[in-house]
Simulated assay, not measured.
Amino acid sequence: MGVAIRVAGEADRERVVRLLDEAFQDDPVSNWVFPDPAQRRAKHPALMAAFTDVVLAEGRIDLAEDGSACALWLSVPAGGNHDGDGDGENGRGDGADEDGPAQLRAAVDPDNERVELIGRLTAGIHPEGRAHAYLWMIGVTPERQGEGLGGALIESVLDRCDREGLAAYLEASNARSRALYERLGFALAGHPLDLPDGPRMWPMWREPRPTGRTQA
């Protein structure tokens, strides 16, 4: 699928935040973090804004030119570990501060321990040792989901990973996204993460392909 993609900048911040908020309002992990719908509507945008700010500062946001989809990537160096702040392909963390999850909770929703817990749990399963590209989040506006936009955004980075011999990693937060990632060459890495009284997440790893091509 041909999708015009560009790298988002500070001027795109509000657009990206709105897109992520809309895309993940009904996501299983977001629903676990904010089980009350009214609380989710009130607090979820701030969580997405915090994630967006981290990646604008430390990583890369690929944005469909029409604003219908975006992918948030972080580069994890060899030997580096990643301290999570958020949820699944629905958000992890900044990797810069051991107190990141606690700081995120304080900034977004101090009374909600799950804002902090999700970051600590996902950080605990994040692979260490090898350099890799980390797909922190990918969001598609609800009315455009199912059109292949997410796959197109991911493939553009995976092609580069293949050329550079770089692995990629993510956590899938639902069965539908897991199936997409498997088609793109990701495989389960270790054991799934079962959130307390919540949904399952799947850590997934992709080795670079020598051909430099992906198959969807």
Rank of each mutant, 00 (worst) to 15 (best):
A216I: 03
G93E: 01
R114T: 09
L56N: 14
A187H: 12
R40V: 12
F186A: 07
L184E: 02
K43C: 10
A78E: 02
N31I: 06
G2D: 14
H44D: 11
D97R: 14
K43L: 15
R114D: 09
L149M: 09
P35C: 02
S75L: 09
P192T: 05
V7A: 14
Y134V: 05
W205Y: 15
D197E: 13
R213M: 00
D12A: 04
R178Y: 08
S156F: 00
W136S: 13
H191Y: 08
D111T: 08
G129M: 12
D27G: 09
D85C: 06
L104S: 01
E207V: 07
R120E: 04
A50H: 11
N90E: 09
L72E: 11
L63H: 12
E171S: 06
L47V: 08
R163A: 14
S75W: 11
A102D: 11
D62Q: 08
D197F: 05
A49H: 04
L72N: 08
E14Y: 05
Q103H: 14
P35G: 03
D26Y: 10
N81Q: 13
L47C: 07
A133H: 02
M48S: 13
E116A: 13
R114E: 08
D197I: 03
P208R: 03
R105S: 10
M201I: 12
E143C: 02
Q39R: 14
G2P: 10
R105L: 10
R18L: 09
G88C: 15
G150D: 07
A23P: 06
A152E: 14
P45Y: 15
D85S: 14
L104M: 14
A189L: 10
V7R: 15
V157C: 03
C70I: 00
H191I: 04
E116W: 01
N174S: 13
V54R: 07
D12L: 04
M48T: 11
N90R: 09
G190D: 10
A42E: 15
W205S: 06
V3G: 00
D94G: 15
E113P: 15
E58T: 12
A23F: 07
R6N: 09
I61S: 11
G212T: 07
H132P: 06
A187F: 02
E128M: 07
C161H: 05
P110F: 05
P35V: 04
I61A: 11
A106E: 15
R130H: 09
G91D: 07
A189I: 02
V115T: 03
A172L: 03
H82S: 05
D194L: 14
G198D: 13
E164H: 09
L19C: 09
I61L: 10
D87A: 12
Q215A: 11
G124P: 08
R92E: 06
A133S: 15
H132G: 05
